[in-house]
């Protein structure tokens, strides 16, 4: 029993981070109706921002994540206004071309600018583990989880308790009607895309506390992100957070019975099972 509880605990902590990384993808789809294949590149970008903040300013990756949030927002907003806005009402092929192209540009741009080296941080928290009865909790993962929960609560409050949040949700649910009531939906699309990029970049900042940054790390996360988002229900914010926790737990628990190389096998089995039983995902669009 103890190993299982330990595995669930580990999975829960890392799953919170998966949730934050993936929620940006879900938000962008929910509001703009665009599947952003370049979303994971904002994670890579966030990791580099946090790495430079650590390396030159001596900032902890959790603080670096806040800088990553700001950088992700600005870049996302500009990309939406300059590029994504042009394909908003185009067909899906044009949208896929744009976001896949963006992925290639961002990945290769990072390779050109930062080089192929792995860049990691050394922090005190990496050496610390807390004991809780028979269980161990790593300080790095605990910090990452707390940061993930904090940003999730902030996102929830923004969407549900502010005028901007109401405008974002109204635009997601019925853009023409939102426009009739004074909401500048084009501006909202920019804000929502920026916010999605910001959340994923923030996730990248916290991922840096336990994993190294390199230009192609987005490719390692992209399938995971789509799994999380589809599990939770594409377009649902709470669903993505829940999906992240589930994915973390499944990955971690599967290592008890399967070799670690097969941890994604268990994930996809559960993924297919959930989709067979609930094709709209765990929360569907209900929590949009």
């Amino acid at each position: 029993m103890t190993p299982l509880v330990q595995a669930i605990l580990d999975g829960l902590l890392v799953g919170g981070v998966y949730g934050v990384v993936a929620v940006g993808l879900s938000l962008v789809f929910g509001v703009l109706g665009i599947v952003n294949f370049a979303q994971a590149e904002f994670l890579m970008l966030g990791m580099y921002v946090a790495w430079f903040a650590w390396s030159f300013l001596g900032l902890d990756p959790m603080l670096g994540a806040v800088l990553a949030l700001a950088a992700g927002f600005m870049l996302g907003y500009v990309i939406q206004r300059l590029l994504v806005q042009r394909v908003m009402s185009s067909d899906h092929v044009a949208q896929i071309f744009l976001t896949v192209g963006l992925l290639a540009v961002m990945e290769n741009g990072a390779l050109m600018i930062f080089g192929p080296d792995f860049r990691s941080v050394q922090t005190d928290a990496q050496m610390i583990s807390y004991r809780l009865g028979p269980f161990f909790i790593s300080a790095v993962y605990l910090k990452a989880f707390v940061a993930a929960v904090a940003i999730s609560v902030a996102l929830w409050a923004l969407l549900n308790r502010t005028w901007l949040g109401r405008a974002i949700r109204a635009t997601a649910q019925d853009a023409p009607a939102a426009q009739l009531f004074g909401i500048n939906t084009r501006w909202i699309y920019g804000i929502a895309f920026g916010l999605g990029a910001a959340l994923t970049a923030f996730g990248g900042g916290i991922v840096l506390s336990f994993a190294p940054a390199y230009p192609t790390i987005g490719a390692n996360y992209v399938v995971l992100m789509f799994t999380v988002v589809v599990l939770g229900g594409l377009g649902s914010v709470m669903g993505a957070l829940l999906g992240g926790l589930l994915v973390g737990i499944v990955q971690s628990a599967s290592t008890l019975v399967l070799p670690i190389q097969l941890q994604n096998l268990a994930l996809f089995v559960i993924f297919i099972a959930v989709l067979a039983l609930r094709p709209e995902g765990l929360l569907g669009k209900a929590a949009k």
Partner: peptide, 15 residues
């Protein structure tokens, strides 16, 4: 064209 996944109060607030 009401906002289906917002409460009645929130719909009115958008107005």
């Amino acid at each position: 064209h009401i906002f289906p996944q917002m409460s009645v109060v929130e719909n009115l607030m958008v107005g």
